[in-house]
Amino acid sequence: MTPTLSITDQPIDIAAALAAVQTDAAGAVNSFIGTVRNQSGGRPVRRLHYESYDSMALTQLNHVVAQAYEKWPMLQEVAVVHRKGTLELGDVAVVVAVATPHRAESFAACQFIIDTLKQVVTIWKREEYEDGTEWVAAHP
């Protein structure tokens, strides 16, 4: 039941993240895979640069997962892997995987973890365009 949480500058191994949540107690494994999209608000994006405050990001990620275990006591295993550094179009930026006895909770817990991660985990994203870069969500 110890979650597998990491922030890495290496390509994410999706199969390894799914394998990390494998348990005979689960009848459902649900995953979210976030990838690099080629546009943002209609503006073409060439690549993304992710920066992480690793120690705090992992601390906050642990809090998020602890909240998920409180909300869904039947939650079995959790894995969250987030990439940092420079990512090209199509690269995997984040994988969230959860294992639960039944499917309904697996969807809910997986969505809660990725939604809450985006609110509190200290990772920043800089979009690179043809004519410059911008930190995402920095300004109103």
């Binding site: 992480s52 705090m56 984040v94 985006k118 609110q119 985990v121 200290t122 990772i123 920043w124 995402v136």
Partner: peptide
């Protein structure tokens, strides 16, 4: 203390 400024996060 380890102190840091935290601008709007944008993981995922």
């Amino acid at each position: 203390d380890e102190i840091a400024l935290i601008p709007p996060v944008a993981g995922g």
